[in-house]
C-alpha cells in the first residue's frame, strides 16, 4: 500500500507533464476545429453547390473513419506523402483538429440555421455585404448558441487525445503506460490517469459553462 502511494507520488510530476501535453493537443485541436468548422458551416449554409458538396464529403470522411485509423493514415501515410515531416505531437493536433472540425461544423451549422432569417435580411437592407452580416450579426449569435455542443465536443476530443499515445506522443496515457510497465503498479497508475482526464474534463466544461453565462444575451431564452 505504502509502495503504491510512493509510486504514484513519484510519478505524479511526470504524469502532470503528460497532462500539459494532453491539454496542448486538445487546445490545439479544438482551435483548429473552431476555425475550420466555422468556415465550413458558413460555406455549407451560404456557399455555392460546389463548396457545399466539398464540405459534405469532408464531413462524411472524418465522421466515417475511426480516429485511430486517421492517426495512422495521416502520420505514417499522407503527411509523409505531402512532404511534411511532423512530430507526433503536431500530427496528433492536426488529425484531431481536422476530425473535430467535421463535428464542430455541424454544431455551428445547426446554430446558424436556428437563427431567425429576418436578421440577415435586416442587415442586408442596411447595406451590409453578406460577409459583414455574417461576421457582425450571424456568427456572434450562432457561436453563443454553440457553446453547449462545443463543450460536449471538447470532452470527446479530450478523451480521443489518449489515442495519440499510439504515435508516441508523450501525453497522459503514454506516460502512465510507461511507468506502469516499469513498476508493475498498473491499477493505481491507470486510476491516476483516469482521474487526470476526469479533472481536465471537469475544468474545461466548467470554464465553458462560465463563458456561456458570461455571454448570455439579457432577457433571451433560447
Amino acid at each position: 500500500m505504502l509502495n503504491t502511494f510512493s509510486v504514484i507520488l513519484e510519478a505524479l510530476p511526470y504524469l502532470l507533464k503528460g497532462a500539459v501535453v494532453t491539454s496542448g493537443i486538445v487546445i490545439g485541436a479544438m482551435g483548429i476545429g473552431l476555425v475550420l468548422g466555422v468556415h465550413m458551416a458558413v460555406g455549407q449554409v451560404y456557399g455555392n453547390r460546389a463548396f457545399r458538396w466539398l464540405v459534405n464529403l469532408y464531413v462524411w470522411f472524418f465522421r466515417g473513419v475511426p480516429v485511430l485509423v486517421l492517426l495512422f493514415l495521416f502520420y505514417f501515410g499522407l503527411f509523409t506523402l505531402a512532404g511534411l515531416n511532423l512530430s507526433a505531437f503536431a500530427a496528433s493536433i492536426l488529425v484531431l483538429g481536422m476530425t473535430t472540425a467535421a463535428y464542430q461544423s455541424q454544431i455551428f451549422r445547426g446554430a446558424i440555421l436556428s437563427l431567425p432569417r429576418g436578421q440577415l435580411q435586416a442587415a442586408r437592407a442596411l447595406g451590409m455585404s453578406d460577409t459583414k452580416a455574417i461576421i457582425s450579426i450571424i456568427l456572434p449569435q450562432a457561436l453563443r448558441f454553440s457553446i453547449p455542443g462545443w463543450s460536449n465536443e471538447y470532452s470527446i476530443i479530450l478523451k480521443d487525445s489518449a489515442l495519440a499515445f499510439v504515435l508516441g506522443t508523450s501525453e497522459i496515457m503514454a506516460r502512465s503506460h510507461f511507468v506502469a510497465s516499469r513498476t508493475y503498479q498498473e491499477l493505481p497508475l491507470y486510476i491516476t490517469a483516469g482521474c487526470l482526464y476526469f479533472i481536465l474534463t471537469w475544468l474545461g466544461v466548467r470554464a465553458l459553462l462560465k463563458l456561456e453565462a458570461k455571454v448570455r444575451i439579457p432577457g433571451y431564452s433560447h
Binding site: P116, G118, Q119, Q121, A122, P140, Q141, Y220
Partner: peptide, 10 residues
C-alpha cells in the same frame, strides 16, 4: 422596416 422588426438579438 419589417413586420416582425428583425432587430439584432445580441
Amino acid at each position: 422596416i419589417f413586420q416582425d422588426f428583425n432587430l439584432f438579438d445580441h
